[in-house]
Computed example of a mutant assay.
Amino acid sequence: MLSRVSSAAASAPAARLTPAVLLALGIVYVVWGSTYFGIKIAIGSLPPLGMLGIRFLVAGVILFAFLRLRGAPMPTARQWGASAVVGLLLLGGGTGLVTLAERDASSSVAAMVIAVSPLFAALFARLWGERTGGREWLGIGVGLLGIALLNVGELQATPLAALLLILAPLCWTFGSQWSRHLPLPPGLMGSAAEMVTGGVLLFGFSLLMGEQWGTPTSASLWALAYLTIFGSLVAYSAYMYLVAHTRPALATSYAYVNPVVAVLLGVGLGGETLGALGWVALGVILAGVMLVAWPKKMPSQTGPEAAAP
């Protein structure tokens, strides 16, 4: 779900690789990497935006109810408004555009394009006064070279799908950076409010686009259930555990792993193909991300920031 490193998380203590940390890492790596393939299956018979509306609204309501039962305070009107802004940019603009693009593009290619999110995050950080150093600029250039190679060799999609795949990480990273300066509800309640408001907005977009609901296949329904339970609840809870118990660079290292998992699933289970130039492009993109995200001073002070579909 929402994948950002807050300023509070930046002070999270470094920790040993305990069994719990390793389990949480495995969940985030595999589950968030598999959501691209899950989306492809879900939209086989479900409308893209309507499917996402169900996914995030159900997950958000479940998490919201759980937190309220645990005594978490109700978000204020101002916090609901900020959550709607973040939900619009991350869930509507980020995940929503990826899902629309996957109608005409493979899940493997979608994951590879979204891998450049940390590069865009470095650019948007300048809007709030964060300095971009020489190595970050080099990483951005390397990542964009990877995208160029991907377009030459593998991006077999309509021009609209290609445009959506570029806009999605722009929306996600801008929303992630802006969210650090908005009055969001604290902790997991912020995620719940963003999913609830984002789900409502996605339903609204679905109605505006005139999406039609037919009879869904069992495969699409199972994929939707997987995305809701594991992609939006389990994996995000595991991610928040990592944020609280280890350094941000490790907690957000999924940015390096998710594209590889997505490609392997798309090729191995989805019958998608990836040529030699595509594998080279994937390596170049990940090299650019590592240049941007590698710690400047202390390992606990920075980490990658990438869209989790």
Score class of each variant (00 low, 15 high):
3 S>W: 01
27 I>W: 15
50 G>R: 02
127 L>P: 12
18 T>R: 07
190 G>Y: 15
166 I>E: 01
279 W>C: 00
129 G>C: 06
211 E>L: 03
62 I>A: 01
56 F>N: 06
94 G>L: 02
85 V>C: 05
297 K>Q: 06
178 W>T: 11
210 G>H: 11
45 S>I: 04
15 A>W: 06
114 I>T: 04
18 T>N: 03
160 L>W: 15
275 G>F: 01
238 A>I: 07
112 M>S: 01
33 G>P: 12
65 A>E: 00
67 L>P: 14
261 V>H: 03
188 L>W: 12
113 V>P: 02
22 L>P: 07
108 S>C: 10
308 A>T: 12
22 L>E: 09
79 Q>I: 07
43 I>R: 02
136 E>T: 00
228 T>R: 15
23 L>M: 11
231 G>F: 10
308 A>W: 15
242 L>I: 04
95 T>N: 13
259 P>A: 01
302 T>I: 05
212 Q>T: 15
188 L>A: 13
282 L>F: 03
101 A>K: 05
289 V>A: 12
161 A>F: 15
82 A>T: 03
291 L>N: 04
166 I>H: 05
86 V>F: 10
118 P>A: 05
225 A>P: 09
204 G>Q: 14
5 V>N: 11
10 A>R: 14
31 V>I: 15
43 I>F: 10
291 L>S: 02
208 L>N: 05
203 F>A: 05
248 P>N: 06
50 G>W: 08
250 L>V: 12
281 A>Q: 11
178 W>D: 00
53 G>A: 13
66 F>Y: 13
134 G>W: 04
149 L>Y: 04
221 L>C: 05
296 K>E: 03
54 I>C: 12
134 G>D: 12
149 L>S: 09
148 A>L: 09
124 F>A: 07
39 I>R: 05
296 K>S: 13
157 A>P: 09
264 L>C: 05
105 A>F: 10
260 V>G: 02
287 A>Q: 02
295 P>V: 14
249 A>N: 06
150 L>F: 13
26 G>W: 15
6 S>K: 07
218 S>V: 11
33 G>C: 13
5 V>E: 11
302 T>E: 01
191 S>E: 07
300 S>W: 11
112 M>H: 01
51 M>V: 01
186 P>M: 04
177 Q>K: 06
264 L>R: 08
8 A>H: 10
58 V>Y: 13
248 P>E: 09
38 G>W: 04
101 A>T: 08
187 G>D: 09
143 G>Y: 04
92 G>F: 10
204 G>H: 14
293 A>I: 04
39 I>Q: 09
141 G>A: 04
10 A>T: 15
239 Y>W: 08
115 A>V: 10
292 V>E: 01
193 A>I: 03
16 R>Q: 08
4 R>Q: 06
59 A>E: 06
82 A>E: 06
54 I>Y: 14
162 A>K: 09
92 G>W: 03
250 L>E: 11
240 M>W: 14
292 V>Y: 00
21 V>I: 08
75 P>A: 12
152 V>G: 02
113 V>N: 00
235 A>L: 14
45 S>P: 12
201 L>A: 12
33 G>W: 06
195 M>V: 02
300 S>K: 07
32 W>M: 10
112 M>A: 08
172 W>P: 15
294 W>T: 08
309 P>R: 02
171 C>P: 08
96 G>Y: 14
245 H>C: 07
36 Y>T: 15
272 E>V: 12
118 P>F: 01
109 V>K: 02
